[in-house]
Computed example of a mutant assay.
Amino acid sequence: MLLLTVNIAIAAYFFGSISSAILICKLRGLPDPRTQGSKNPGATNVLRMSDRPTAAAVLVFDMLKGAIPVYGAFKLGVEPLHLGFIAIAACLGHMHPIFFGFKGGKAVATAFGALAPISWGFAFALIATWIIVAKVTKYSSLAAIVTVSLAPVYTWLLKPLYTNSVTMLSLLILFKHRSNIKRLVKGTEDKLSS
């Protein structure tokens, strides 16, 4: 089972390394998102530089990068803690993509895709938290930070078996947002409305 986990984690990293933001922007004749706005190749930055359908396509593909390997591993009987490692591998692929010079995004959508199959209630709690915080504050990064911070709590309440795996993934996403946290404290972070 450990060998299976390692193989799926390696595949998850390579799958996660496919940057939908860069590829979709290229297909649409848009600039590389790593050179525009927040310079983050993710759905929020793509929305800032294009339109909702383009950003939605990026969002869906990025979620699938987390959901497919984790859900596939779950169906193959991989244990909960190892599912966390597979989710982390997919997110690391998005953050440090081997196909794009290791310059990737924050992996929020990829992490959500990895976490959503835990349960419908859990997925709804994550979505509701992000939407409420984003609507109230207009900060996508703050919405992500609050959501991933609460994810282990939601897991403990709804599916405690996965609490350790979710906590590991949440810590990775929070670490990746350390520059956003500094900008939020300084009041220099970009808002969604901008």
Rank of each mutant, 00 (worst) to 15 (best):
V60Y: 04
V185S: 10
I18A: 10
I118A: 00
D32E: 03
P97S: 10
P41M: 03
G72W: 05
I131T: 14
A87K: 03
L81R: 10
Y13F: 08
T155F: 09
G29M: 07
I145L: 11
T35K: 11
T44R: 03
L59I: 06
F61L: 11
L64F: 07
K39F: 01
Q36H: 15
K103R: 14
C91I: 04
I131V: 15
H82T: 12
L161N: 12
K26S: 13
V70L: 07
L27M: 14
G29N: 09
I181S: 03
T155C: 14
V78A: 00
L2K: 14
S194Y: 11
G29Q: 10
A143C: 11
R48W: 08
S193F: 13
K75N: 12
A109W: 00
A109Q: 03
L150M: 15
S170V: 03
Y162C: 00
S140I: 15
I181R: 01
L23S: 13
L184K: 05
I173F: 10
L184I: 11
L184A: 03
M63Y: 07
K39C: 09
A90R: 04
F99D: 12
P117T: 05
T188G: 07
G187P: 03
M168K: 01
A21K: 00
R183E: 06
A123M: 12
A21S: 09
I132V: 15
L174E: 09
V108Q: 07
T110W: 05
L59W: 06
I173H: 09
I98F: 13
I86N: 01
L169N: 00
G113D: 06
H94Q: 12
L92Y: 06
T129L: 05
G113W: 05
L83F: 12
V133L: 07
I86H: 02
L157K: 12
K106C: 09
L171D: 06
V6R: 11
V148C: 07
L142Q: 06
I24M: 06
Q36E: 15
A134C: 13
A67P: 04
F124G: 07
I127W: 13
K176R: 15
L172E: 00
A12Y: 02
L184Q: 06
T129N: 01
F122S: 04
